[in-house]
Computed example of a mutant assay.
Amino acid sequence: MTRSRAVSATGRALPILVPTLTKQSWSFMVGSTLFAVGAAVAIWDLGSSNLTNMLCFIGAWFFTAAGLMQTILSGAATTEVDYGPGRMFRAVWLAAAIQSVGTILFNVSTSAALSAQTVQADERLVWNPDAGGSVAFLISAAFVYVAYYRERSTLWEPGQSGWWSAHINMVGCIAFGVSAVGAFVLSDGSLENATVANWGTFIGAICFFSASAIALPQLSWNHRETEAAPAAS
């Protein structure tokens, strides 16, 4: 199997541009941290709304980078099957691709939040993409379960880190969905429930951080095993 590598104009590999599971996990963790801190600023009145918006704006870019890496690393979009049309989408690819779409919608939302000046702009450019991104995350989390079941033939493996990661990710997606409901923009420009919106973001971000952090020790160990293993002849 060949692997594509990012190269410079001189033909040399650029490791920083090569997606890996470790980079993906760290990108989700950094983005989650920024979302959590931004929500904390609003919850405990530690700064202005501009600070919260800026932190979430930067965090969304880390989410997008992680989502793109996840989609690339998920492999082929389809696989052969012995029924129906003969091919079907792979659940793991669908989970990654749909989540990646969600991260882009969060980019739109957090970018617009920095400059929106009217209620209409808040509704169309901030809340709508935010709600859409939250729905995408929920759908993605459902496909994570499908992918896990197809690989492991069970949804009950509390001894596996991937099992915990899948469930914590789902809790985070639900929290982001609740946050979007609380962030609905009313006709006077206020939010339906700012407390729910902020706490939903905070809890969701902590969950996403945890779901990614769980995988890091395993990824690090697998990397050491790969380095130690003899090359195949």
Rank of each mutant, 00 (worst) to 15 (best):
A175K: 09
F209L: 15
L155Q: 03
T118N: 10
H223Q: 15
I16K: 05
L191A: 15
N50C: 01
W156L: 11
D82W: 04
D45E: 15
A91G: 09
S49I: 14
G86K: 10
S220D: 03
T33H: 12
G84M: 02
L34C: 13
S27L: 14
V181I: 15
T195V: 13
W93S: 01
I139D: 02
S25H: 08
F208G: 11
G177E: 10
V37S: 02
R224G: 05
T79M: 07
W221D: 12
F184Q: 11
S212F: 11
R12V: 07
P129N: 02
F184H: 04
Y149G: 08
M88I: 10
A65S: 04
A215M: 06
S115Q: 11
V101Y: 01
A95D: 07
N107I: 00
D45K: 12
I58Y: 14
L216Y: 02
E192G: 11
A183T: 09
R224I: 11
P15N: 09
A231H: 07
R150M: 10
S140I: 00
A136N: 03
L34E: 00
G75M: 03
G75C: 07
G162V: 14
G204E: 06
F89M: 08
R90F: 07
F137D: 04
I43A: 06
Y149E: 06
A13R: 12
T33Q: 09
F35L: 12
G11D: 12
G59D: 06
V146S: 13
G86W: 08
V41W: 09
Q218W: 12
L14Y: 05
V41E: 11
F208D: 13
S4T: 12
V144M: 14
A228Q: 14
F106R: 00
E225W: 11
W127Q: 00
A77E: 06
S111K: 14
A136W: 00
A131P: 08
A121C: 05
V37H: 00
S187R: 03
I72E: 10
M29F: 04
Q117C: 05
G84H: 11
T2S: 14
A121G: 06
Y145M: 07
A229G: 07
D82C: 03
G132Q: 08
G59L: 02
A76P: 08
A141I: 07
G31W: 02
F57W: 03
L14H: 01
A97V: 03
